[in-house]
Simulated assay, not measured.
Amino acid sequence: MKTYLTLFIVACQSVVALAQDHENKTPYLTKSLTNDAINSVVVSTSAGGISVSGQAGQSPRVEVYIRGNNGRELSKEEIQKRLAEDYDMNISVTGHELSAIVKNKHNFSNWTRSMSISFKIYVPQGVTTSLKTSGGGIELDNLKGNETFSTSGGGLRIDKLNGVIHGRTSGGGIDVSNSNEDIDLSTSGGGITAKNCTGKIKLMTSGGGIELANLKGNILAHTSGGGVEGSNIEGELSTNTSGGGIDLKGMNCSLEASTSAGNLVAQMTKVGKYLRLSASSGNIEIELPQKQGLDLDIRGESINPSKISGFSGEWSKNHINGSVNGGGIPVSAHASGGDINMRFN
């Protein structure tokens, strides 16, 4: 099955307007996907946002929202005129793949004529996506498939995805929640929040902090532009920052954490295969499980307390090398420019 919707002045007459508003705005047009059994979505737009949802109870469809630059409202006649003169926009379904492509016919010498063209798409859950925009945010929810998306002009918001998730933005923050399997997200222009996710998780930012909560799996989280906060993490976590401190609570995992710009706090309910902590210009505070067998390598300007019950090995003012509870799991903490405070829970 192959259907086309090429959006010029004449083609606009065949589009049915959607009665329901999106964000208090009525779509410029809508296209029903009820009979197309969509399993793949490809979207490209240069100045607008993209939303793809597999939420149950929604009629499969594409909604298109068009506004003038700086959010200025335009009449339908003015939109039709600018589409015909300045844009090629095509929405088509071929072999169960939805394609929504916007192209500028020329570079705008008069930027006041530019428009924001956004898409909100409702599809079945088992959909693969390839999404790209340079002028808005991207939102995805309730999907099960391989999702690839990028924007240089907005944030990423991801909820209830299950599959291979690969997203990039250089112009906004990232919020990911309730998602699983293989998550790879990065931004150079904002912070990252990740909550209630499992699997292989990679989070990278050079422009903000990172907040992690209720994660389980193999997790890599890096920032050079802010601090890191984490709670209730299981599995394996590697995190580092050169732009802030690190505060980790309720850790039940293997952990490697380092900072060159602040203090480091690690509260371990259980140490996994290893614990490696490093701070170049701040203090380290460690809370360790009392009954685990640990091999300690602790170095700092000073170490508190001055002794630990059941310890065997060498202990000095700024170096501990020995074991507790018979040893076993390697624990290292190095504070080259600060103190180390250690306690057992």
Rank of each mutant, 00 (worst) to 15 (best):
N35E: 15
S302R: 15
I210S: 06
E234F: 02
G243R: 01
D247S: 14
A257R: 05
A19D: 10
N214I: 08
L29V: 11
Q13T: 12
G208Q: 03
C253Y: 04
L220S: 14
T34A: 15
G48E: 09
T112E: 09
R157N: 11
Y122H: 13
D141W: 05
K132M: 11
G173W: 04
D159K: 13
K291Q: 12
I246H: 03
G327S: 05
G230M: 02
G137F: 05
A279Y: 04
T187D: 03
K76R: 13
K76M: 08
G171Q: 06
V265I: 12
S238R: 12
S186E: 10
L131Q: 09
F119G: 02
D88V: 08
V331C: 10
L140A: 06
G167I: 02
A335P: 00
T223E: 02
P27Q: 05
N70E: 14
N24L: 11
C12K: 13
D159W: 06
G71S: 07
C253D: 05
R61H: 14
S75R: 01
R343F: 14
F119W: 04
T151W: 03
T26N: 05
I320R: 04
I284W: 00
G71C: 02
L296P: 03
L237I: 03
S309L: 01
L7T: 00
M268K: 07
R113G: 01
N196F: 09
H334S: 15
I246T: 06
L212H: 06
S32W: 08
D295Y: 04
T269S: 14
D247T: 08
T128R: 06
G137R: 07
L156E: 11
Y28N: 08
P27S: 02
L185E: 10
Q292L: 04
